[in-house]
């Protein structure tokens, strides 16, 4: 169970998971996931968040490699970095196969010890 789970848990992954483990940032990611780079005004539209608050959350996402900000003219536009998200997805797949292994060990352990 643990070999892969441990393997997967690099410091960087921990940062990505922490970055995504926040409802506001999930909302921002959801908006960015439409694919089009968005300005901070677009990202904060319809929410009660200030531009400063949105900017702060975007920087957390940027630090984790989940989103990138680029200057376009006078405005910053933000977009997702799908490569980073794909890496986390691969880890989910690894966790699933770790459960397969763990259950196989459980089965072997119980069945080898059973009274016939």
């Amino acid at each position: 169970m643990f070999a892969n789970r441990l393997n997967a848990s690099t410091k960087h992954t921990a940062h990505v998971l922490a970055a995504l483990g926040d409802k506001t940032r999930l909302l921002l990611v959801a908006r960015l996931a439409a694919g089009e780079p968005l300005s901070i005004s677009r990202l904060s539209a319809g929410t009660r968040m200030t531009r400063q608050a949105v900017t702060k959350h975007l920087h957390v996402l940027e630090k984790a490699g989940v989103a990138n900000g680029r200057r376009r003219g006078r405005e910053h536009r933000w977009e997702l970095n799908p490569a980073q998200l794909r890496e986390v997805r691969r880890q989910l797949d690894r966790i699933a196969s770790q459960w397969d292994d763990a259950l196989a060990r459980l089965k072997a352990s119980v069945e080898s010890g059973r009274r016939v």
Partner: peptide, 15 residues
């Protein structure tokens, strides 16, 4: 409880 992490699964759909 992979709500946060499951975004990554959706990254595949994104591709």
């Amino acid at each position: 409880g992979f709500e946060a992490i499951s975004l990554a699964r959706r990254a595949k759909v994104f591709e």
